[in-house]
């Protein structure tokens, strides 16, 4: 269980998040959506312990603010937006960076399974720095998966924190990565993902937190949150939600001139 109460984050004197409360359950994909600069990445970075905040954030009963990095690392992996590497590591070596202590015996099999999971089994020997941005992003996801490979371990759910995991990917790999997140949740793990693509969110998420101007406007199932008025208000543009019973919700942007009629 991820539970955050009254989280406030400020950069200097400028407050980015104004006392938001957020929760996520294991077994679910929880998406954080909102316009640029709304504070959704800031919220994720507070929940991963990267930013100082006031309020309380608790993951699996452990207070994020005071937890040791290795205790947090044992139960949650974090995928950043982009990860430039300082040195010429191979793909296999990058994935190994994620492995926690005590897994040395299964090292090789974990690395190759994690790479196969993101469709990069053939890339193990390539240099990370020579890959495209999208491929690097998938290597990093493999590293995160290798870190918390089992969605549940000793009755504790493990967690994936993903910061815009599909932004630099083609549509095929967007679906593949979202399916990995979906499967992880279906096997009992928790997934918290900052998302830009509302249609993918509607397709894969169980729960959506809509962030705007440093507040969470609403957190509920996509079908409840994705309403014309609420989304149009949050994104300050006209959006129309369609809900055909066969596919679930999908969104169409509505040009301003059309909406003015």
């Amino acid at each position: 269980m991820m539970n955050a109460q009254d989280i406030t984050v400020a950069y200097g004197s400028r407050e980015i998040l104004h006392g938001v409360s957020f929760s996520a359950k294991p077994g679910q994909v929880t998406a954080i959506v909102g316009p640029n600069g709304s504070g959704k990445t800031t919220l994720l970075r507070a929940l991963t312990g990267d930013l100082p905040y006031t309020g309380q954030a608790v993951l699996n009963g452990i207070d994020i603010a005071t937890a040791k990095p290795w205790d947090l690392a044992a139960m949650r992996g974090v995928l950043p937006q982009a990860t430039p590497l300082a040195f010429p590591f191979t793909v296999a070596e990058v994935v190994r960076l994620g492995l926690q202590r005590g897994l040395e015996a299964q090292e090789t099999s974990l690395i190759s399974r994690a790479l196969a999971r993101v469709d990069l089994g053939e890339f193990a020997g390539r240099l990370y720095q020579e890959l495209s941005g999208g491929e690097q992003q998938r290597v990093q996801l493999a590293r995160v998966l290798a870190q918390v490979w089992h969605p549940v371990s000793e009755d504790q759910p493990h967690w994936l924190f993903l910061d815009e995991p599909v932004s630099s990917l083609d549509i095929g790999h967007q679906l593949q990565i979202m399916q990995i997140a979906r499967d992880y949740a279906d096997q009992g793990g928790g997934v918290i993902a900052v998302m830009h693509d509302l249609n993918l969110t509607a397709m894969f998420a169980d729960c959506v937190a809509l962030v705007a101007d440093g507040h969470i406007l609403e957190q509920d199932s996509p079908n409840t949150v994705f309403r014309n008025d609420l989304l149009s208000h949050a994104y300050k543009c006209n959006l129309r939600v369609n809900t055909p019973p066969a596919t679930g919700a999908y969104l169409l942007p509505h040009a301003a001139s059309m909406a003015a009629e």
Partner: peptide
Amino acid sequence: LNGLALGEAAASHIGIPV
């Protein structure tokens, strides 16, 4: 130092007391 190659935030995410 291996973990730090990922950057300070990511190093902390994989359990390193940066």
